[in-house]
């Protein structure tokens, strides 16, 4: 069974507008009317859980939820067929807002809340549940930011527990949470580079810098490292091979980038869990991510279309 852990889940609120009037010049410009809007349970691990459930893979979503928005997250997950196992905390699960302007959807405006703090007592309670769940786990996904006041060591602790229980670990995070998690030598790592193009202090701005930093991570024992290079391309580093995966899709075709990166990981995980080889998994993951970005709805899943899209994904060995 696959377990996803999203310590700081969210409600993703998405708006599509003609133009976001940032400088309020006239009275009329106080108001921006949305052409369309959508709401969905979010957070990196939760997005992966939803994708996997849509692919028919049984999985359990864990983390911390609270308040009215916490109920919305849990309800959405259950409707998607994801098994839930959250610790309820004081405070409200955060809301993240994304605004897509017409013809600029590939550069959305994001407003992410920090989230509610989680106490040490709540962490201890979570750890007991997590330990129980590990007895059924084949893969554990640790993904997204940590809530305020939570020790940056959390992912390292969770990754070590999972490895000890015999599960493979996937980490998708940034900052100290990621740096510390690397000490537990996860199986698959994807640094979240949306805010900072760096990992462990090393820049990830060019192909050669990504490869240099990536090789260092792989030397520690991490099996697969996936790094976003361009919006439609990633670099994947293993002990034996380095690939550049590219899609031919133009970024102007993108309609909804929210969660697309998580769908990429969900696709890779789906294939690896089925026992497919890494090249096929990467092709599938990239195709799924691209299709998701091209659709209006967050986390698009259509196996037939993903397989069609795979033909347009190039995997070049560097």
């Amino acid at each position: 069974m696959i377990i996803t852990v999203t310590p700081n889940p969210a409600i993703d609120k998405m708006y599509w507008v003609d133009r976001l009037k940032m400088g309020r010049v006239t009275r009329e410009e106080f108001l921006t009317r949305a052409i369309r809007s959508d709401t969905s349970a979010g957070g990196k691990g939760i997005n992966i859980s939803i994708f996997l459930a849509r692919m028919g893979v049984e999985n359990v979503a864990m983390g911390f939820v609270g308040g009215h928005t916490g109920h919305v997250v849990v309800r959405d997950l259950r409707e998607e067929g994801v098994t839930t196992n959250f610790v309820w905390v004081n405070g409200e699960t955060r809301t993240n807002v994304t605004v897509f302007e017409r013809e600029r959807a590939h550069i959305p405006i994001l407003i992410d809340e920090e989230g509610s703090p989680v106490s040490q007592e709540e962490i201890s309670y979570f750890l007991r549940r997590y330990k129980r769940m590990l007895k059924r786990a084949t893969w554990v996904v640790l993904a997204g930011s940590l809530p305020p006041e939570v020790d940056a060591d959390l992912y390292r602790v969770l990754a070590e527990m999972a490895t000890e229980a015999g599960a493979k670990v996937l980490v998708s995070a940034h900052g100290n949470a990621l740096t510390n998690a690397l000490h537990a030598v996860p199986y698959l790592v994807k640094p979240d580079t949306r805010e900072h193009l760096s990992m462990e202090g090393a820049p990830l701005t060019t192909r050669s810098k990504i490869i240099t930093a990536g090789r260092r991570i792989i030397e520690t024992g991490v099996r697969i490292l996936v790094v976003s290079h361009e919006v439609t391309g990633d670099i994947v580093i293993t002990r034996d091979t380095i690939w550049e995966i590219k899609s031919r899709v133009k970024t102007t075709q993108f309609k909804n980038l929210v969660g697309a990166d998580d769908v990429l990981l969900g696709g890779i995980l789906y294939m690896l869990d089925k026992g497919e080889d890494l090249e096929e998994a990467l092709r599938f993951g990239m195709a799924a991510g691209i299709l998701s970005a091209e659709s209006d709805k967050k986390i698009c899943q259509n196996t037939e279309k993903i397989e069609e899209e795979m033909a347009h994904i190039s995997l070049e060995r560097i």
Partner: peptide
């Protein structure tokens, strides 16, 4: 309902009421 919310027997009553 695929929910695994549960507690262990040594959880305190106040923790149960909170959840």
């Amino acid at each position: 309902t695929k929910d695994l919310t549960s507690m262990e027997k040594d959880t305190l009553v106040r923790g149960l009421i909170f959840t």
